[in-house]
Amino acid sequence: MSGASSAVRSLGAALLAAGAALTVTAALADSPSAQEIIAATDRVRNPGEPFRSTVTLTEYVGGSERNHDRLVVFSKEDRATHQFRNLVHYVDPPRDAGKKVLLDGHSLWFFDPASNVSIRISAQQRLIGQAAIGDVLTVNLGVDYTATLTGAETIKDAARADRNCWHLDLKAANDQAVYAHVEYWVEQGTNYPIKGKFYSDSGRLLKILYYRSFAPELGAVRPTEAVIIDAVDTSLATTAAFGDYRSADIPDAWFQRDYLPRLQVQ
């Protein structure tokens, strides 16, 4: 199962797309509620319809590029849970091509075409490596967290430019929430997600996330790259570049484990 770890390492991209798809209530002009800001920023990150996208993951160790993966992700909202379900298909490097991963809520299934079996990846197995970034990107902020507005703050974005942001404090609202506590900065006015800090149950800072390269994709300006910095193993960083968003009619059947071996992606 050597393919499992490398495939799982690349999961972040798939998860990126899985955000909350909330019905956005009309934002109040002056003092938007924290929950409204989160909902709005969820909408910036994720299209409100089923779609496919291409994700390129780049891994850095001590600032040097180490690894490169390219994947195609199919995402669709689960009407019951308001969470995105994701199907990830590996394209590059060639040794991983054809591998697939299904993410549905907290369960993660990995399919290796070489052995033609699907195996379940446990939470324990997602602790380190780039698989761990999946949890940052899947954070279903609007659904799983209760937000409070800490205040307005001017911070430097990934490109060292000043941004006027809302500083939000998010607490886990249910057991599905992966992190006990998240700090989030959202640009005032545009509702662009700029930065996030993710904390463990024990209160330790686990990950720092920056969004950058905002560009029009599928009907809105969206961040096309995320930089995820590992705050435990501080030498690790990963970038996830998103592109080629396309609206897609994805059958629900795809999001079943049994379907993994049959799924063909062009």
Binding site: S64, E65, R66, R160, T234, S235
Partner: peptide, 23 residues
């Protein structure tokens, strides 16, 4: 099969911004 590339100054700067590098 994994050759350490050149240090990407951009990423290194971002990584070092909030947490001290090298532990």
């Amino acid at each position: 099969g994994e050759h350490p590339g050149k240090v990407n100054a951009d990423i290194a700067e971002l990584a070092g911004r909030d947490v001290p590098q090298g532990g």
